[in-house]
Amino acid sequence: MTTSLFFVQLINGLQYGLLLFLIASGLTLVFGVMGILNLAHGSMYMVGAYLAWYFVQQTGSFTLSAIISAVIALAIGIVVERLLIQRLYRRNHLDQVLLTIGMIFVFNALQSILWGDDPLGVQVPEAMSAAIPLTDVVEYPVYRIFVALVCVAIAAVMYFMINRTRLGMLIRAGESNREMVECLGIDISRLYTIVFAIGVMLATVAGVIAAPMSSIVPGMGEHVLIACFVVVVIGGMGSIKGAFIGALLVGLVDTFASVLMPQLSSMMIYILMAFILLIKPQGLFSS
């Protein structure tokens, strides 16, 4: 591999990893704070992509579409948490698994009914349709750099929020001892609703900003769900920092494996995960 190709692949891997982080961050946040294993997380990514397409059709503006989609995602998160998830806090994890699998079915069916089954596409916003030449042949689209920057920005905001704000303090307190938080007179159920809605919104926003560079198709949620779980488990469930490192690791390993070891590339991220869990059975950064 030439040096220039190596750098191009490095950028590819980092960019894929950053997007994975954005999708996975909500999953790990919800698990860390609430102990809820939300298998329908991938479905929210799918919903995000479809919403982006729908509102671009309606409004013609990608930015507007992204804002509307994020608001809708918050609403979905609040409703689902209040209506369904809240009933299961005192049950075991497996009931939550079953519930969220039921939700996957419902979201997939609604997608088919509302938007049909044809593959859909969203064009890259006009302002970011340029590309930067990397080698003689390969260019790098500005939009993909923008997406990477957004992911970094969201990671930074999450880091700041959790470590520096009152909400973050409550989240950290809730993670380590929920009874104590309740004793202090804080409405933990409202905190849970907020956290769940933020988790849903993160997945949806990831779906929205990924829409212009992916194909919007039925089943896209399940595919991304597995990758997300790999990321989150490698990093250690509930750890935002772990998810960030895990995502970059998965992105890089997947990218380089597909070029260097094509025969093994389908298995590579699973080999990576198995390997890490055998050495550190709780993931890299478990709390």
């Binding site: 597995i226 790999v230 469930m237 869990l277 059975p281 993931g283």
Partner: peptide, 17 residues
């Protein structure tokens, strides 16, 4: 050697391989 969610994922990993 693992348990809980980690066991879920590592069994998944072997099955996917």
């Amino acid at each position: 050697r693992t348990s809980g969610i980690y066991m879920i994922m590592i069994t998944l990993a072997f099955a996917q391989m």
